[in-house]
Each structure stands twice: as C-alpha cells, then as structure tokens.
Design a protein around this nucleic acid. Structure first.
Length: 483
RNA sequence: GCCCCGGUAGCUCAGAGGCCAGAGCGGCAGCCUUGUAAGCUGUUGAUCGCGGGUUCGAAUCCCGCCCGGGGCUCCA
C-alpha cells in the first residue's frame, strides 16, 4: 500500500468551491426556495434538507445499527484490516447474499447484461487518469513492482473499457451493463466511516445504460427510477422510509422541467433539489433516494445519473442510423445503493420501530431463522427436528433449540434473535394436527397446521430468493461469534 | 487527513496512583425435566488495546501508535 501524498481528484477540489441553490419541488410542480417551503407533514424531508443544507450534525452517539449488527451476529469490524472493511458472520453473509441475489435478479429482469471486471486498474492509463479527476472520491492505491494501481470505486471503469472495445449499433441502445461490485473501494476519511453506513469497501450493484440521445436517456431514466423504487420496496422500504434528492444544473432544469416533475410525481412526495449554476461533474442530472436514520442522518441508497462526458472520454461510440459514429449518453445507476447500506437501513428502521414500541424485525425473507422449534424437554428434540426438516423441504429456514434450558429461556433467546415464528413442541403437540405458533409480528399464538404455516410463510416470501439455514440446524452445535 | 471522546474477561460494564483487578451475562460441569421473554449451584475466564516513559509503586499520570465513536468534509 502506497504511503505517498494523497491523490486528491480535481472533482474533490472543485466541490470545495461549489455553490448550490436549494429548493423543494412539490408534487404540483412548484419549485420553492427551501426557506419558503412549509414542511408540515414532511418531517423526514425536513430532516434530510437540514442534513444536506444546514449540515446539522449535532449527534454525538454511535448509530443504533452498530450494536444491532453485532448482537444479531451479522457483521463486525475487522481490526486486522483497514477501517471500514468488515467481516460477515454466517447470518450476516446470508442476509447480504440474499440481497445481492435479489437486486441482481431485478436488474436482469430489467435487461441488464451481467459482466465481471477487474477490481484494480493502472493509474497511468490515460483515460482512467482523466476520469479519476472527475470523480469525487479517494482511492486505495497498490504498488506492484514499478507499477501503481488503484482499486475501483465503482464498476464504471471496467464497463466503460469493455464498451469502448465493443461494436455498438444504435439498434443495440439502450445498452444495459451490470455488475455487482464486490467490492467497490473508496478510501473515505477516517471520521466519515460509521458502522455499515459508510465503509471503505462496499458491495454496489452498478448498472450503466448507454443511450442514443437525451430523449432515449430520459425514457430509460424513468424506467430505472421505477426499478429502483421496486427494488427498495422488495427489500422492505416504502416511500415513507426515504426522501428524493435531485441534483441538477440550472440549464438542464430549465429545459427539462416536465421531465423532472415526472420523477417527483413517481416518487409521490416533494423532493429536495440542489441546483448548480455550472456543471462541476460529469453529470447534468442525478437523483438519490435518501434514507433518514434514527439519528436524523441522511444517506443515499438508490441513485441514477445522466453522464454527458464519459462516452467521449472513454471513446465509447455507436454507429447511428445516419452512418456517423457518435458518443452515447451514459446513465449510472445503483438500484439499491450499497448492499451494506441496505442492511444498515433495515437495522436502523427496525430500531426506530422498536422505539415506537413495536417488535424490531427483519423482512421475513431475510430472517436467518424463520421458524424456531423449541422442544419442551430432551425427549421432544427428535420430533422438533422432524418438523424442522419438513419445513426445510419447503424452503423455509427452520432450526431447533436443543439446548438444556427451560422453555421460557429458549423463547426469550429466540425473541432476542428476532425470529419471526416460534413453535414450542411438547407432549401436547407431538402428532397433533394443529400446533400453537407464536408470531413475533403481533405477539399472538395461533393454532395452525404445518401446512398452513408453510403457506403463510411462502406467501410472504414469494418472488424473493432463498438460501438454506446458514448455521447447523441444532442450536447447540453453533459457535458463538459475538459475546 | 485534522480536532474531540473512548478502549478493563468472549460480551456489557464497575474500579480513577497503593495489598493477589471486580460483577452480570456467556462458556464448562452438575442438579432440575422444563409449557410461551432469564430455574438453581459450582466453576472457568483479564499480556487492564499495543509500545515506550514518569514513579518506591501505573489499569489509573505523560508520549507515540492501533481500533472504535463523534465532528470537519463526503457519499453508495
């Protein structure tokens, strides 16, 4: 790892003198200066705006998701690595893998072509050197013999270089290329790192779309806006959970008002707009869905941009109808945002619900254990295991607490793990058609058959990827990774 | 990167210059044979983040480093 003076990109320097004007764009299409907007009924948007504009960051606390990610044995710091590079325990890896598979599936349905590209690039490569200067990020650098490389901070490099070498016709556009980057690296400043909210190595689904012209780019942009919304919904977020931020140059806004309003209408809530007099970056329009956490901090999840520079910079061309080689516009989208950040948001959301008196939960399709079987005593362990195996055959993650503990203790531990369904199995249940199932969501115990339970769970996880139990079925066989 | 706060057993924390560093949880062993959020007893467990210094004496004071949190700044 190089310890030479930090390479600060021109974009980062430009950003320092960047002046923005802030507005709120309403559903009706009114663009109001921030201070004139009435935030009644839009409290989260207010928090987002305060965070972005007033830079009000008065909190002096560890974000709540940090203790959760550890106590649930999902993710942890890895002191032997660089800060912001995490370790994932089996349950955390399961959740992350399911999210990765889900987002990837959604992007493939949208038409993304899945590719894989290197994670490190030559710093001396002329095109890349120029691009580095247009992207507001800090890199990790690696020396190998006399050569110097940087670790990618997004999938752009690989996909653009690939596109440069491809023969592309206007008939191929929009051309959608996708990679789930594991990892993207950004050497964020030490104090910027926070739990899963901001990392130095993160997993980002990154889908680009090469577009013929602005009209096509705008159509595609809207599709991807919907894709992102659907992806977040599938993960477990409704539009109540995030705020739309739009960054745009004055010029582009003036010429494309109706288009920008249409984004706000799709979102269904007013949006914060940051307007730049000049274009500092490679894009003319960008939006993000921003999650506002338990400490009123905002961070971007999904995002998309219209890039007007890199088609030319990378020498990406397509043959147009008129026989002319032209540079495409490029859209840069992460439909879910970083996977780690999705987990952060899920945990923060659960924490906020807990504060409201609701039981904190993860979406059922992400719960590491979906059904916990609790044998009343040793003699019921085998019966419990039979039920668990039956559920597993129906692609439900079920396990058995075979420890020599009392029933109340095992219930308590299952609740502390946020397990959605708990079944106590004793004399009364062995061989019975209907057995009592305790549901975490409402705390009720309902009698149902296994078949009914299977149907109820499968209905809730329909369309979502599945992975088997990430740990041994018997709880006693499991190591304790934390505490 | 800079500034502020913190790091004591696997986990959560007490101890703030003076005898062998404590508790709860966990782990292990035994008892109990358990019925919807903690059964009982015993036992194990600590280079006090790391390295240097001050002192008769350092977990405690000083310096450097590492890790975490917060801020500046920034973003997925």
């Amino acid at each position: 790892m190089s310890e030479e003076k930090e390479v600060v990109s021109e974009a980062l320097k430009a950003e320092e003198k960047l002046r923005s004007k802030w507005y709120v764009l309403s559903l009706e299409g009114d663009l109001k200066p921030l201070e004139e907007f009435d935030f009644t009924g839009h409290e989260k948007l207010k928090k987002f705006a305060d965070y972005e504009v007033k830079k009000s960051r008065i909190v002096d606390q560890e974000p709540p998701h940090v203790s959760l990610m550890r106590s649930l044995e999902l993710v942890d710091y890895e002191p032997a690595s660089d800060p912001g590079n995490m370790r994932y325990y089996p349950k955390g890896r399961l959740i992350k893998a399911l999210l990765e598979e889900y987002v990837t599936g959604m992007v493939l349905d949208y038409g993304g072509m899945d590719v894989e590209t290197p994670i490190m690039y030559d710093m001396a490569h002329p095109t890349l050197a120029k691009y580095l200067n247009r992207f507001p990020a800090r890199q990790y650098t690696i020396e190998s013999d006399d050569d110097k490389y940087f670790l990618r901070f997004a999938a752009c490099f690989g996909q653009f270089l690939m596109s440069h070498d491809a023969t592309i016709s206007y008939r191929n556009l929009p051309m959608r290329i996708y990679e789930l980057t594991r990892y993207s690296f950004r050497r964020e400043q030490r104090g910027e790192l926070a739990g899963l909210r901001r990392l130095r190595a993160f997993t980002m689904p990154d889908v680009h779309a090469l577009c013929r012209d602005l009209a096509q780019a705008k159509r595609e942009f809207r599709r991807r806006f919907k894709l992102s919304r659907d992806v977040l919904r599938g993960i477990g977020f409704s539009s109540d959970d995030y705020e739309l931020g739009i960054r745009v140059t004055e010029d582009f806004y003036r010429r494309n008002r109706r288009f920008i309003r249409s984004l706000v209408r799709m979102h269904g809530k007013p949006a914060l707009v940051e307007m730049w007099r000049e274009r500092f970056f490679y894009f003319i329009l960008k939006w993000e869905f921003n999650f506002v956490d338990a400490l009123d901090k905002a961070s971007a999840l999904s995002t998309d941009q219209i890039d007007v520079e890199n088609g030319e910079r990378y020498g990406i061309t397509y043959m147009d109808e008129d026989g002319q080689l032209k540079n495409p516009l490029i859209l840069h989208c992460s439909p879910s945002g970083a996977i780690e950040r999705d987990i952060y948001a899920l945990l923060e959301k659960a924490y906020m619900e807990m504060k409201e008196g609701k039981p904190p939960m993860l979406p059922l399709w992400l719960a590491p254990t979906q059904v916990r079987l609790i044998p009343v005593s040793e003699g019921h362990v085998e019966a419990a295991e039979r039920v668990a195996r039956r559920l597993s055959r129906s692609r439900i993650r079920a396990d058995v607490d075979d420890r020599d503990e009392t029933v109340p203790k095992k219930i308590r531990d299952a609740e502390k793990e946020w397990i959605p369904y708990i079944i106590v199995l004793g004399e009364r249940e062995v061989g019975a058609e209907k057995i009592p199932v305790r549901a975490r969501a409402d705390g009720e115990i309902r009698k149902m058959s296994i078949r009914e339970l299977v149907a109820e769970i499968r209905r809730q996880v329909r369309g979502k990827p599945y992975r088997p139990l990430p740990l041994p079925m018997r709880v006693q066989r499991r190591p304790k990774f934390v505490g």
